[in-house]
Simulated scan of single mutants.
Amino acid sequence: MTWADFWALIDTLNGEATQASCRRLAEELGRRSVHDIIGFAELHAEALYRLDQEKFGTLPVADLSDRDGRSFPQSADQFLYTRFAVVAAGQAVWEGVFFDVDKFAPYTSTEYDGEWLLYVPDRAYELATGKQWDRTTRYCFETFSNRDGWPHLRS
Rank of each mutant, 00 (worst) to 15 (best):
E115G: 10
A88Q: 05
F72K: 05
K103F: 08
L117Q: 10
E111M: 08
E126S: 09
D36W: 05
V93H: 08
R70N: 12
G39A: 07
D100H: 07
S109W: 13
A85S: 15
R31P: 02
G114R: 06
G30M: 10
F104P: 02
A76T: 03
V93L: 04
A26C: 11
L25T: 04
A26D: 06
R24C: 07
Q78N: 11
D66F: 08
A20N: 08
R70W: 02
D77P: 03
F99Y: 14
P73E: 00
L117Y: 09
W94D: 01
G39C: 06
V86H: 02
G57C: 14
L29G: 06
D100T: 00
F98T: 01
R50A: 09
Q78C: 01
D36N: 12
D66M: 04
A76D: 14
A47G: 13
E111Y: 11
E28R: 07
D66S: 05
V101Y: 09
D122G: 12
V120K: 03
A92P: 01
E54K: 15
A26T: 07
Y119V: 01
E126I: 00
F84Q: 04
A45D: 15
L118M: 14
T82H: 02
F56L: 05
F98R: 02
Y49E: 04
A20Q: 13
S75C: 02
A128K: 14
T82F: 03
L118I: 00
L25N: 09
L117K: 08
Y107Q: 01
L117V: 05
E27C: 08
